[in-house]
Design a protein around this nucleic acid. Structure first.
Length: 490
RNA sequence: GGCCCCAUGGUCUAGAGGCCUAGGACACCACUCUUUCAAGGUGGUAACCCGGGUUCGAAUCCCGGUGGGGUCACCA
């Protein structure tokens, strides 16, 4: 295969959503697999909808997933600029070629007229296509309209006969009758190219070898192929990847919960898990492997193994993968990753001193296997950073009930106050002793103490937890729980 | 509505005519481990959309139907 050059070409009209991210990932995997180049191009030809801020968000999302690009914004490259809004001269040049060839003509129909005709056609059950009425306007008719101050759009003369065949790397060959295509617009009246034109010009000018994009573009492809033909350019290979659908099988939108990468990030998903999950949506290396690192994905990625059917994304599976990555991460890295979540929850200050950093790592080490997301991890950690503010209701009924509870906590407290060492091993021995002395099972001690010290009925092993909390806080919390029990008859 | 794509459990998928008594994973349900929770282990429920062909033989090939999706913008 000649030099592989792929591109991811988002339009900056919103944040990077899962579908876009998956397309970016497939492009990236394909490029890396073939030792090719990944081009990032921002398609901002819609002046009213494009936002600088969206473009930044998209780049940020790509960086978060560690999908690097070889050419594009902030990196430059030999085929720039990489913002379509800055490529007007290029489009004009290609447009000129089409004009020379007599392949385009001006159309003076207003958007309102066109919309009205479309609506009418739809009501009459006819396909809503442009009828070509401006195709054969005389010079006189044209200058009349220009005289009235109408800025025309430019349309392509599409042949009425024949068929255009898309040879798709994923779907095989797909044929479209040219008769169903209409004379689509290449150049808008505001002086900007349309998507279909800009896209073809750029892919040709940037020497893109493979266009890997979402299936919604499949029906645009014959139009683009027609353009390559009149331009005399060799078209790239196409690969249309299936759509990602919401759980109700409709097109993904905001009302389906998290759909933008940024939201997943804020919910505490890790980029490694995200990439792994996205790769599994529509592709599988062998039907068995679920967890894979980048190296594996790059080594095995194959467009021929991309599925043909749309996929529904499933947060539960993402969550499962995320938990695996959470557990496998180095504690230091994990501590760094949860930090923003702990701050947001008001559990830690802006700056952490050295010993606090070490403490945080130990906390994280204790809780990591109980959390599925960073957000959840932060929530589970609250009692390590602030006093217990209340006791779990069910826990109270179960473990704080009866006359003996306060007395029992007092006994434990006394015992722990006198313990020589405050280590998990020593604490465990102390609990065993005390339980034996009182003739009760250890659980009878463990559960009330956990509730007293953490406010919860669940969590890490009690002894590790007590050691980490330290004698002072443990004794203090036991005393507080005793007082609470005296004030609240259960 | 026209055109195009697609069709294996609730979800993601393996399957390129006999290896399929349809495999894996998430989720779910049991049991197990256990100081709780989580993780882990074991087991279980659950699918080839329907109808015709082709073939000795079809989840796999063909046709039709049905269903879902996409697209028909001076959006990309």
């Amino acid at each position: 295969m000649a030099q592989v050059r792929v591109r991811f070409a988002p339009s900056p009209t919103g944040s990077l959503h899962v579908g876009g991210a998956r397309t970016a990932l497939f492009n990236w995997l394909f490029a890396r697999h073939h030792g090719g180049r990944m081009v990032l191009r921002i398609e901002d030809t819609d002046r009213s909808r494009s936002r600088e801020e969206s473009a930044r968000g998209i780049l940020e999302g790509m960086r978060w997933l560690e999908l690097d690009w070889d050419e594009g914004p902030e990196r430059g490259g030999d085929y720039g600029p990489y913002y379509q809004s800055q490529r007007l001269p290029v489009y004009r040049e290609y447009l000129h070629r089409l004009e020379e060839a007599g392949a385009v003509y001006p159309c003076y129909c207003t958007p309102e007229e066109l919309a009205a005709r479309r609506e009418e056609a739809r009501r009459a059950g006819r396909p809503p296509r442009y009828d070509g009425r401006c195709r054969a306007l005389s010079r006189q008719e044209r200058s009349d309209r220009e005289g009235r101050g109408i800025e025309p759009v430019l349309r392509l003369r599409v042949p009425a006969a024949g068929a255009t065949v898309v040879d798709d790397l994923i779907r095989g060959s797909v044929s479209f009758e040219n008769a169903v295509l209409d004379d689509f617009i290449l150049w808008k009246s505001d002086g900007m190219p349309t998507y279909n034109f800009a896209c073809v010009v750029d892919d040709a000018a940037m020497r893109i070898s493979h266009v890997v994009r979402a299936e919604e573009h499949l029906s645009n492809t014959p139009k683009q192929l027609l353009l390559y033909a009149v331009l005399g350019e060799e078209p790239p290979r196409f690969a249309h990847v299936p759509m990602i659908l919401a759980p109700d099988r409709s097109k993904l939108s905001k009302r389906h919960g998290a759909t933008s990468l940024e939201e997943f990030r804020q919910q505490g998903f890790l980029p490694q898990a995200m990439v792994n999950y996205l790769a599994l949506l529509g592709w599988s290396p062998d039907g068995v492997t679920e967890k894979m690192d980048r190296g594996f994905m790059v080594a095995h990625f194959d467009l021929g193994r991309v599925t043909h059917n749309a996929a529904v994304y499933d947060v539960q599976k993402l969550t499962w993968l995320n938990a695996i990555y959470l557990r496998e991460m180095a504690v230091a890295a994990l501590a760094r990753a949860v930090t923003p979540f702990l701050r947001r929850a008001g559990l830690i200050p802006e700056e952490l001193a050295g010993p606090q950093q070490e403490y945080l790592e130990r906390v994280v080490g204790l809780l990591r296997e109980r959390a599925h997301t960073l957000e959840e991890l932060a929530a589970l950690a609250d009692y390590f950073f602030r006093p217990v503010e209340g006791y779990d209701e069910k826990g109270v009924r179960k473990h704080f009930r009866g006359e003996g509870a306060a007395e029992l906590l007092a006994a434990v407290r006394e015992r722990l106050a006198g313990a020589e060492e405050f280590t998990a091993a020593a604490l465990e021995a102390a609990f065993s002793d005390l339980a034996a002395a009182r003739g009760v099972p250890r659980g009878a001690l463990i559960h009330p103490v956990r509730l007293a010290v953490t406010g919860r009925t669940m969590g890490p092993g009690l002894f590790e937890l007590l050691e980490l909390l330290g004698r002072e806080r443990v004794l203090d919390r036991l005393a507080r729980a005793q007082r609470w029990l005296e004030e609240n008859v259960v």
